[in-house]
């Protein structure tokens, strides 16, 4: 931890990693809350795994055809948006089973990615960093794109918070109040896709669902309004990402995995704390009842 604090002021790659953690945390706290309250974790999972297709295609075009501007992050963003649009269209208009659509998007995205990786010479060593994240390898341009995506998420949330809240709470109620449910549901899917792209930089494709949901799930155990869940979830995300980065640095552990472990431990502790609190309250209530004087007949 001390070594991390010391090195942050010296090394640019650590400063970038710290900045990326903070940027990812804001989007993670806000959009993760929507994902958790809508119980749509598997949508985030499908989009995140689909990213491998975009990343693989981008790297193939860079290496084989020399299209240098088409970075893996840009490829991931495109793949995420296409996946979100597909999931939205098929589930809203296609009258298909949502789990079937999600499974198809999940697997086909990964399959395309693996095919491109196989066709790209000398590329397979980067596969691990995409799957499990490598926050220490971020470039300045990645940070700019992350900042832009973050801005989109923040502005959209402030402008459409009320609409998103009523759509997440009760679709029919929203429809009766004149809210265009399909439009806002698709918009939320796009925001989820952009946030997944941000988080893949930090923890990788495999663990992005955990980072998107654990802080929001932990926060929702402690507060009772969506706006409060978002704020607390953002604070927790900052703690987990920065904490995980610092803890993993000295022993040379993978930062993404440490971040998720930290978030998982916090979630379990909160659940245990709530369980213990409920038990203690029930015991106190029983004691009060037992010690109360018998009513006179």
């Amino acid at each position: 931890m001390l070594q991390f604090a010391e090195h942050v002021s010296q090394y640019v790659f650590l400063q970038y990693a710290l900045l990326a953690s903070l940027l990812a945390s804001v989007a993670c706290g806000i959009v993760g809350s929507y994902v958790v309250v809508q119980r749509r974790t598997y949508i985030a999972g499908a989009i995140s795994h689909c990213l491998l297709g975009g990343m693989g295609a981008a790297r193939y075009l860079q290496t084989v055809h020399g299209v240098q501007w088409f970075t893996p992050l840009l490829g991931a963003t495109l793949a995420a948006l296409i996946a979100a649009a597909l999931i939205g269209l098929i589930t809203l208009y296609g009258r298909q089973r949502e789990d079937t659509v999600l499974s198809a998007v999940w697997a086909i995205g990964m399959a395309i990615g693996i095919s491109f990786i196989a066709c790209t010479p000398g590329y397979s060593e980067d596969l691990m960093s995409y799957l499990f994240g490598n926050i220490l390898m971020l470039a300045r341009s990645d940070l700019w794109l992350m900042a832009l995506l973050n801005l989109v998420v923040l502005v959209a949330t402030v402008l459409f918070y009320n609409k998103f809240l009523v759509v997440c709470f009760h679709e029919e109620l929203a429809r009766l109040r004149g809210v265009r449910v399909q439009l806002y549901t698709t918009f939320l899917l796009v925001l989820t896709a952009l946030t997944v792209v941000l988080l893949v930089q930090v923890v990788g494709i495999v663990m992005v669902i955990a980072l998107l949901t654990l802080p929001a799930a932990t926060a929702s155990q402690l507060v009772r309004r969506l706006s409060h869940v978002m704020i607390l979830s953002t604070v927790l995300s900052v703690c987990f990402t920065v904490g995980g980065l610092a803890l993993s640095y000295e022993p040379g552990l993978p930062a993404g995995a440490t971040i998720i472990e930290l978030a998982g431990v916090a979630y379990l502790l909160v659940l245990l704390g709530k369980f213990a609190h409920r038990k203690l309250r029930a015991r106190a209530a029983n004691n009060r009842r037992d010690s109360a004087p018998e009513p006179q007949s």
């Binding site: 309250v37 709470f169 009760h170 929702s220 969506l226 869940v229």
Partner: peptide
């Protein structure tokens, strides 16, 4: 209203 009882509202 059929709603998620854990919804924070």
């Amino acid at each position: 209203v059929q709603f998620d009882p854990q919804f924070p509202v």
